[in-house]
Design a binder for these strands. Structure first.
Length: 572
RNA sequence: GAUUAUGUAGCUCAGCUGGUAGAGCAUUGCCCUUUUAAGGCAGGGGUCCUGGGUUCGAGUCCCAGCAUGAUCACCA
């Protein structure tokens, strides 16, 4: 047998055609009525053994133990796994035992999806099991699944290679049950956040993803082109400026779960596309917003994990209110013992060097403070902590602090050593805003690729007047990582961005036959490593001749051995 | 981007100082029958990531590349 499939794939394809020959449709069209799930059976049957005396259940076959005329199998549905018991004479009441002996035992495989009817009972081993009276094939699986086994909590042969898990997330979800759990929790997180915001009366809105100018954050964008308008568009890096336009327009509370795109490095905390929830509420300030974040995240923790305490790595994180609050200067003083709040730029620069923080001459006072904070404090903040009052240079969209010179009214919540949200009293002074944009332009001219662009329409909007507003951006992926104890952002995204999969380019058979290669030699030629005609043309005829003779023997081909002349004629 | 580790059967992994490619699971055939990581016997299955080099001989040593992970840098 010569084939491009693996042996196991070929066996499954053979089973498929045998099923068809037996008159069994491997992909039937009609619905299969399901009236129970594995989870509810496992939960309810022990307390009432009269239940489930005729159930219909469907799922994927995950294991089989065949023993002559009796067999056990496990099927997996959306809620979990349950064992099935097949008995030859139960499944085949008549003389003809084909359905059990051939269809079940030989033609079905792990991975196939079946529907069964039967009654629930306890086996001698005490396991809740469905005694199958009839079954129906719903989908034949043509690829073998990795087999993951587990005993007493120990996983054997885990399907753990991150590349395969992320590229083939469907396989990951089938064989690694905890993975499904992460995504269910992620959705609970989003749902409870949305419910909280709706309950407060804020309006969920949608704003453009394709933007002629990108803004609202400091990041490099993805760039694209609109043909009809013949204009450059960017995928949004944030939606802040649009939501604030809506506040100008008279909505007092708007929010959006925003898929944002940033053209930057990728690692376990960064994916090129990620989700933020941004919220803007009129007539509020950042103090008020801090209280909202505390309350909202505490509620989410309870909704997702049922408790305010969550185990993340080696730490137990407690989201119970109130959270610790530090100004940035206080945090630095706390972790380094040095009070820099009264220092000038020179003194801060010297302090940074003393603390082994990497700094250079181009950094202004604000940047220096931020570097010191990032280096000495951030990773030590495990319990949720608000850091307030940031240097103005770092925050071109935040309002100047009501009492502290050089600072803005801004806070971040840090948790497990990472920023989870960023918020401020929004700058609504259009003249100040224009100046801040202009100084960003200066930074851009000096070569900062992340400097913000001047958004003339946004300025026009706030020149009409925006009420004092509190704004918040909260990273859904980061929060999901914490809430699900996930080590990387890739674990909380169904399909994280990966390098493109390398695809072998294979010439059509007709290209080979057109070049004079006989049909029966195409597979051996491909087996010998020449997948395209172009590669074959570069081959050494003597080596190919040897290889093909070897392959002829190995593959037990019943065709005459090739001649060297013949092979030379292919290559020329 | 830097450093580093890994890449061997469908899956998980062994493979020593260089000498005929191995195990468990999966798969195929047979046996058994309320088993449970089922078991017993017998089989099949490999571009040892790719390309060069050293060598009589490379899965193993050297160089380059590709992929993935980790750490660091970048990402206010």
């Amino acid at each position: 047998m010569i084939t491009e499939f693996t042996e196991q794939e070929q066996i499954r394809r053979n089973s498929l055609s045998e099923l068809i020959n037996l008159g069994i449709n491997p992909y039937p069209a009609e619905l299969f009525e399901v009236d129970a799930t594995s989870k509810e059976i496992l939960e309810k049957f022990p307390t009432d053994n009269s239940l489930y005396q005729s159930v219909n259940i469907a799922g994927r076959i995950m294991s089989r133990r065949i023993m002559g005329n009796a067999s056990f199998a496990e099927i997996q549905d959306e809620t979990g796994r349950i064992q099935l018991y097949f008995n030859r004479d139960e499944v085949c009441k008549e003389e003809d035992k084909t359905l059990y002996n051939i269809v079940f035992k030989k033609l079905l495989d792990i991975g196939d999806i079946i529907g069964v009817n039967g009654y629930v009972f306890f086996t001698k081993m005490g396991e809740i099991t469905i005694h199958v009276k009839g079954f129906k094939l719903l989908c034949k699986s043509l690829r073998p699944l990795p087999i993951v086994k587990e005993k007493e909590g120990v996983i054997y042969d885990a399907f753990a290679d991150p590349e395969q898990r992320y590229r083939q997330r469907y396989v990951d979800l089938i064989v690694n049950s905890h993975v499904k759990d992460i995504f269910i929790k992620r959705t609970k997180l989003v749902n409870s956040m949305r419910a909280y915001l709706n309950e407060k009366g804020y309006l969920e809105v949608e704003t453009p993803i394709l933007q002629p100018l990108y803004g609202g954050a400091a990041a490099r964008p993805f760039k694209t082109h609109h043909n009809a308008l013949d204009t450059t568009l960017y995928l949004r890096i944030a939606n802040e400026l649009y939501l604030k336009r809506l506040i100008v327009g008279g909505f007092d509370g708007v929010y959006e779960f925003s898929k944002d795109f940033r053209n930057e490095g990728m690692d376990r905390f960064h994916n090129p596309e990620f989700t933020q929830m941004e919220l803007y509420v009129a007539y509020k300030d950042y103090e008020w917003m801090m209280n909202l974040v505390e309350e909202m995240v505490e509620k989410i923790a309870i909704a997702v994990q049922g408790a305010t305490e969550i185990k993340v790595g080696d730490n137990i994180i407690n989201f119970k209110r109130p959270w610790k609050r530090f100004t940035m200067f206080e945090a630095i003083a706390h972790y380094t013992g040095i009070d820099i709040s009264k220092m000038d730029e020179k003194e801060i620069f010297a302090t940074a060097q003393k603390l082994n923080v990497e700094v250079d001459e181009t950094m202004g006072k604000g940047k220096l403070i931020d570097e010191i904070f990032g280096e000495t404090c951030e990773s030590k903040l495990i319990q949720p902590t608000f850091i307030t009052d940031y240097p103005v240079e770092m925050s071109p969209l935040a309002k100047k602090h009501r009492s502290k010179e050089g600072m803005v009214e801004r806070f971040e919540a840090i948790c497990n050593g990472k920023e989870i949200c960023n918020a401020f009293s929004e700058l609504n002074d259009p003249i100040d805003q224009r100046k801040r944009f202009e100084s960003q332009l200066e930074l851009g001219k000096r070569g900062d690729p992340e400097a913000m662009m001047l958004d003339e329409d946004f300025l026009r909007a706030i020149e009409f007047g925006m009420p004092p507003t509190a704004g918040l951006g909260i990273g859904i992926d980061r929060l999901a990582m914490i809430m699900t104890n996930a080590h990387s952002i890739q674990e909380v995204l169904f399909f994280p961005q990966m390098r493109p999969e390398k695809k072998a380019i294979i010439s059509n058979d007709s290209e080979f036959t057109d070049a004079g290669i006989p049909q029966e030699w195409i597979v051996p030629v491909k087996k010998a490593g020449f997948l395209t005609l172009a590669e074959l043309k570069k081959a050494n005829p003597n080596k190919l001749f040897n290889d093909l003779c070897g392959l002829r023997k190995k593959l037990k081909l019943e065709i005459p051995a090739p001649t060297l002349e013949m092979i030379k004629s292919w290559i020329e």
